[in-house]
């Protein structure tokens, strides 16, 4: 039975949630505001910024003139989509075997995979950099796609494993009894049932790969540089570039923010999949 909630409690909860939501969103809102100001206005006191100065598209024009936004954008798209799809190719069979054909080592393997995420990336920077140098992969989209796939793979496998565990094994058994091959079983029975989970895994990994700033900056120079490097090129300790930095940030986060917005329902559904039995 639903617990009765008083009007006052509901209002308080709404106000607190609203305030927390605003607090979390505020940095993005402020970036958005500063992006439409001149450099001189952007460093004024907050109230002056909001009400005492004009609005302009100047920073966007300058940023577009000085940088090739579309090159960085296309690199971000290729790298984030590529690494996610490549990750799925490896993760779906891996998660299937762990969820439906577990061995006594499955749990250890899962924990080991997760433990690789606990290592600070900088710890393996030099070896990876040297491997990339020797394989001629520095500043290449392929190299970056493989690295991002590898660093996000534990998350993809863990998420898919959790979703697959919610699917009754009997359904797959029935498919097998009907003569389905392993490929057909995964492709036509398991995958359609796990679509919400796979969709949220894909979305989350695209977001993670899009925002990844350590490897994307360290392993690229110009050809494969994604939007993360585009943003850092407007950060400067000498001279003020807050407005331009904000404009560059808005241009970099807008695509992923819009994507997240439209797929919010799918994302939440996927993330809470299996949370309530």
């Amino acid at each position: 039975m639903a617990r009765a909630v008083s009007r006052r409690t509901r209002l308080t909860n709404t106000a607190v949630a609203g305030a927390l939501g605003f607090l979390m969103f505020f940095p993005i809102l402020w970036i958005l505001v500063l992006a439409f100001k001149t450099e001189e206005d952007a460093i004024r006191a907050p109230l002056e910024v909001l009400f005492g100065s004009g609005w302009t598209m100047e920073s966007f024009t300058t940023v577009q003139e000085r940088s090739d936004y579309f090159k960085h954008f296309s690199n971000s798209v290729v790298i984030s989509l590529g690494s996610t799809l490549l990750g799925l190719l490896v993760a779906v069979p891996a998660a299937w075997s762990m969820a439906f054909v577990p061995s006594k080592h499955t749990r250890n393997v899962l924990m080991w995979m997760l433990s690789t995420k606990m290592l600070p990336p900088v710890g393996v920077l030099v070896p990876i950099y040297l491997i990339f140098r020797d394989l001629d992969l520095l500043d290449s989209r392929f190299g970056l796609t493989v690295v991002l796939m590898l660093i996000n793979l534990p998350i993809i496998i863990w998420m898919l494993y959790t979703y697959f565990r919610e699917i009754p094994g009997e359904i797959l058994e029935a498919a097998r009894m009907d003569g389905a091959t392993l490929r057909e079983e995964i492709l036509y029975v398991l995958t359609p049932m796990a679509i919400p989970g796979i969709a949220s895994t894909v979305l989350l990994n695209i977001i993670l790969a899009w925002n990844e700033a350590f490897w994307t900056i360290n392993l690229t120079a110009s050809n494969a540089a994604p939007l993360t490097q585009f943003i850092t090129s407007y950060s400067s300790p000498e001279g003020l570039f807050y407005a331009k930095l904000s404009a560059a940030s808005v241009m970099a986060i807008a695509p992923i923010l819009i994507m997240g917005w439209f797929s919010q329902k799918q994302l939440v559904r996927g993330l809470t999949f299996g949370a309530v039995k």
Binding site: N218, A221, S222, N223, A225, Q229, T232, S235, S236
Partner: peptide, 13 residues
């Protein structure tokens, strides 16, 4: 090809 980076990032890179 210009690779423009923040000073500390440039140093490290």
């Amino acid at each position: 090809n210009w690779v423009v980076l923040e000073e500390n990032v440039l140093r490290q890179r």
